Simulated assay, not measured.
Amino acid sequence: MTARPQNAPADHPVLPKPKIGVLIANLGTPDATDYWSMRRYLKEFLSDKRVIDYPAWKWQPILQGIILTKRPFTSGANYRSIWNNEANESPMMTITKAQVSAIAERCANRWGNRVMVEFCMRYGNPSTPDVVESMVKAGCEKILFLPLYPQYAGATTATANDQFFRALMTQKWQPAARTVSAYFDRPDYIEALARSVERKLGGVIPKRLVVSYHGMPKRYLLEGDPYYCQCQKTSRLLQARLGWADGVIDTTFQSVFGREEWLKPYTVEHVAELARQGITDIAIMSPAFAADCVETLEEIQGEIQHAFQDAGGKSFTYIPCLNDDPGHMDMLTALIAENLGGWI
């Protein structure tokens, strides 16, 4: 609905009815699995200084000359193995759409049409600047920005916030803005994780539950990034909620890239070592991801599972991400409601 402001002259442009926006952000996805689509996506992702912080003179020749020549082929193959061919999109895109639809329905039931819920991707489409532009045009005078990362990291939460604020810089009439903090230690988030474990395992305690988080260079931790500590606390809180003894849950890190030392233990090496020690029945989950993606559907259930089995492992149970599970959607809606305090 649009109208001219009260007492405005006849030539004043019509304006949309004021709204509050909720913008949910995830990492991103290529538009397709072909070489050029993958190259565009990887170039944007790997050129982000929050992700790879080497000096441009050192990093860009490697990226442009070597990585972007070869990696689009292997990454494209990985995405093709999990691609949602029916919708012609990545699983992350499919799941994110379902999540946003569920959250929007909950928000509409609570606040009617006063709140507009949309989503964007940090890399790829729909881009953060495009969605911010459309929300402002739709009348959003206030926007709550929610990066879908339970644990804070400079390479995830911070870069998503950076892009959001860059998008706001282009607006003539800039909306008020808030960002949502990491939510790794919320009781309702831990409850959702625990219930996902209990549903998948049917109440059976595995010999080992490997809780695998996306990795990062160890140097980032030493420079002050809290991600490692928040991952460790997530695992501790999950263990306490499940009521399991010490030693059942192992915290590991996956997706190592380059030659620099990353957070350890590395998941792929750890599961193989478990198998060699005779622990041949394990479960694995990845709480750092709000939606299943190439790192969980291809890396965990491909490379990591194969490493476990090649070392003698037998039973490998993957516990899916929370995705659009109702408990997860209720938790995120509650998180949104708390952060909208004073606005609605």
Rank of each mutant, 00 (worst) to 15 (best):
R4V: 03
R4I: 03
Q6G: 11
P9C: 14
A25T: 02
N26R: 00
G28A: 03
T29G: 03
A32P: 01
S37D: 15
M38H: 15
R39A: 15
R40Y: 07
K43M: 11
S47F: 14
K49A: 06
A56H: 10
K58D: 01
W59N: 04
Q64P: 02
G65L: 06
T69D: 08
T74K: 15
A77T: 12
N78T: 07
N78E: 11
R80S: 12
I82F: 08
I82M: 05
N85Q: 14
N85T: 13
A87Q: 14
A87T: 03
T94S: 10
T96M: 00
Q99E: 06
S101V: 03
I103V: 09
A104M: 04
E118K: 15
M121V: 12
R122L: 07
G139Q: 02
K142D: 04
L144A: 04
L144N: 09
P147Q: 01
G154T: 13
A155Q: 10
T159R: 10
T159H: 12
N161S: 10
N161K: 13
F165G: 05
F165L: 15
R166I: 09
T170H: 14
Q171D: 10
K172C: 06
W173I: 12
A176E: 09
T179W: 04
A182N: 11
D185A: 14
D188R: 10
I190Q: 05
A194V: 12
K200G: 08
V204G: 01
P206R: 07
V211R: 02
G215T: 04
L221M: 11
L221T: 11
P226S: 07
Q230D: 02
Q232K: 12
L238V: 11
G247R: 05
D250W: 04
D250T: 12
D250E: 14
F257C: 02
R259K: 11
V271S: 03
A272S: 14
I282E: 02
P287W: 03
A288I: 05
A291L: 06
C293L: 00
E295R: 07
T296C: 00
L297N: 00
E303K: 15
I304K: 04
I304Y: 03
Q305F: 05
Q305N: 10
Q309E: 15
Q309L: 15
D310H: 07
A311S: 10
G313S: 06
G313F: 05
K314A: 12
I319Y: 01
P320S: 01
C321K: 00
C321H: 00
C321V: 00
D324Y: 00
D325Q: 06
P326M: 06
M331R: 02
M331P: 01
M331V: 06
A334V: 13
L335S: 13
A337W: 09
G341T: 15
G342W: 15
W343I: 11
